[in-house]
Computed example of a mutant assay.
Amino acid sequence: MSPPHSDENVPENAPEHCPGTESDQAGKASACAGCPNQNVCATAPKGPDPAIPLITARMSSVKHKILILSGKGGVGKSSFTSQLAFALAHDEESEVGVMDVDICGPSIPTIMGLEGEQIHQSNSGWQPVFVQENLGVMSIGFMLPNKDDAVIWRGPKKNGLIKQFLKDVDWGNLDYLLVDTPPGTSDEHLSVASYLKESGIDGAIVITTPQEVALQDVRKEIDFCRKVNIPILGIVENMSGFVCPNCHGESVIFPPTSGGAEKLAKELNIELLGKIPLDPRIAKSCDMGVSFMDEHPDSPASSAYEAIIDSKFFFYI
């Protein structure tokens, strides 16, 4: 299935910082200068996005919407999202969905064992690809003719696909919808926050690693959440030490020179949900598309995942 065209009224050749036709600045902003569509955008109808009520209606059957965020790339957002989804789906009475909005780097299909699968349509909309009966996934990775194809899209087209994931996918009755995001605080994050504003976001789990270079970007992500009014459920410190699979001895790989996530959580008055040690078998499980907790239930990393799920934030939401 080829990637769908954005249903936003924004041309594919729009400038990178295009304000969109709904904006009062459409055709007037500095980014519009020289754009061949400047006059069209300036005269297009303005007003609320008509897709918002459709998204709100679709999301009314989703109990809890949780964003997985980090300002930093490579800290394990997707691996955490997948393992959290697997763990939540252990409860056969829970319905879980994963929405991958990392448009340019979709890794969720591989991590969840769905590589090569395709999306199917029905009268009720796009159908998620199911890992198991109570765990469905949606990603642009299912739409690419070749898994190595680059997605070279500007902001408006990315936003249009995210909008379609929210309003056109038949998620059904979900207990949890986990939204895996790319690094940064850009188009994808703003789109999700905007489109889900009326239906409500339960909160964000912020992922970091212990070293200061990661914490610097995570501070920006936390500031983003506070500026757009996304509640922060807590911080997870990933790769928090290395655990030997044989002797279970632990070594520090990423030194927390500035105090790590624990100090950051105290400084910003945010809950520290847990610390997940670095176990090389997590990477192997992600490459194989299986649940790490099922494969290695005795690992300290599995215990850390279980403690996060059992933490009070799940009872709070």
Rank of each mutant, 00 (worst) to 15 (best):
Q164E: 11
E117F: 06
K163Q: 14
R154H: 10
Q127C: 08
V98T: 08
V131P: 00
G97N: 02
Q132C: 04
Q121T: 14
I162C: 06
V101F: 08
N146V: 04
W126Y: 12
F142S: 10
M138S: 05
I140D: 01
D168E: 15
G105D: 04
V131K: 01
K167D: 14
P128D: 09
Q118Y: 05
T110Q: 11
W126G: 05
G136Y: 01
N173I: 04
A150E: 12
L114T: 08
L114N: 06
Q127R: 15
W153V: 12
S139G: 12
N123S: 15
E92H: 11
T110M: 13
L166W: 04
E117W: 03
E93P: 02
S122H: 08
S122D: 15
V169N: 00
L144Q: 03
P145E: 03
D170A: 15
I103H: 05
G125N: 07
M99Q: 01
S124R: 14
V151P: 11
D170Q: 12
I103Q: 04
F142E: 04
D170H: 14
P128R: 10
L135D: 09
C104A: 12
H120V: 11
E115H: 05
F165P: 03
W171V: 02
D148R: 05
E117N: 10
K167H: 11
L174P: 01
P109I: 10
I119R: 08
D102G: 03
G105V: 09
G155I: 06
K147C: 04
M112D: 10
L135F: 13
Q132W: 05
D168G: 10
R154Q: 10
R154S: 11
Q127K: 15
D102N: 05
E95Y: 01
C104H: 14
D102S: 09
P145L: 00
D168R: 07
G172I: 05
L144R: 01
W171F: 09
M138V: 13
N146S: 13
G116Q: 07
I111D: 05
Q118L: 11
N146M: 05
G155R: 02
V169W: 00
G141A: 14
N173R: 11
M112A: 09
D100T: 09
V137Q: 07
N159A: 14
F130S: 08
S139R: 07
P128A: 09
V101P: 03
L114W: 06
M99K: 04
G113H: 03
N146W: 01
N159F: 01
K163P: 00
G113K: 06
P128E: 05
I108T: 02
Q164N: 08
Q118R: 15
V169A: 10
W126H: 09
D102H: 03
C104M: 09
P109H: 02
R154G: 10
